[in-house]
């Protein structure tokens, strides 16, 4: 049944390791860029609010495959943006994929975080303002720390979705799990067992993430 699983020929663990790397790097990038976007959307400067709103609506409503393929076809292979890598190399595709995932996933991080900001009672921000703190200080010292603690669970959702979304990187040839799956199906001609194997691999990645972050969410939540 599992005679297609020739580990010398197919680098199964390497492929899933690439999936993990894509997830972690894109996750960190999205967290940073998403936080900045959320700050823009609640800021008192109208132009920043407008930018944040337009950005979130454009990228959240564009299919991910389109964003990833555009990063490769448009930015790299037409405009020649190589991101300090050579054309046709794995590192170029990898970096482009991370860029695409950050552009897309940060919108979900931003919206989750904005809902977290709404859980912080208005009185706290008002009290901070009354003490003479600036907008940046109110956000970074008072509001965001409490907002983050409230949105661990929604952010875990975003992270799990991101893990599975990394399969889209196969479209531009990043050697991650979905690309290896396609290779193996083409070479071994056994669709169902190979698909089950990879589905299992993703469960191994996402299930512990969900359970762990669920536990963290309970511990971290602000009891009001």
């Amino acid at each position: 049944m599992f005679d297609f699983l020739d580990l010398d020929r197919y680098d199964l663990f390497g492929a899933f390791w690439t999936t993990v790397q894509l997830t972690v790097l894109s996750g960190i990038g999205s967290l940073i860029w998403g936080t900045i976007l959320a700050a823009m959307r609640v800021s008192p400067v109208p132009i920043m609010r407008a930018f944040g709103t337009v950005y979130v609506h454009v990228f959240r409503n564009t299919p991910l495959t389109l964003i990833i393929v555009a990063c490769s076809q448009l930015l790299a292979y037409t405009l020649g943006m190589t991101m300090w890598a050579d054309f046709g190399t794995q590192s170029l595709s990898f970096r482009l994929a991370v860029l695409g995932f950050v552009l897309y996933t940060s919108t979900f991080v931003c919206e989750a975080l904005r809902s977290g900001i709404n859980t912080v009672p208005v009185g706290q921000a008002e009290a901070a303002r009354a003490l003479g703190l600036s907008f940046t200080q109110v956000l970074t010292l008072i509001v965001l720390p409490q907002a983050f603690r409230a949105v661990v669970a929604p952010l875990a959702n975003v992270l799990i979705a991101l893990t599975k979304n990394t399969t889209v990187a196969a479209a531009i040839g990043v050697a991650e799990a979905a690309l290896l799956m396609r290779d193996m199906i083409e070479q071994e001609a056994q669709l169902v067992p190979i698909a089950i194997l990879f589905a299992f691999g993703f469960i191994v990645l996402t299930l512990p993430t969900g359970l762990f972050l669920g536990w963290v969410a309970k511990r971290a939540a602000v009891k009001r």
């Binding site: 490769s72 076809q73 292979y77 037409t78 054309f87 190399t89 531009i172 040839g173």
Partner: peptide, 22 residues
């Protein structure tokens, strides 16, 4: 040792080939 860029379809390869990046 060659750099190999895999894409989903052959048409996607033609963009890079035409622009000289492949």
């Amino acid at each position: 040792d060659a750099n190999l860029q895999p894409f989903n379809t052959y048409s996607e390869c033609l963009t890079g080939l035409e622009n000289g990046t492949l």
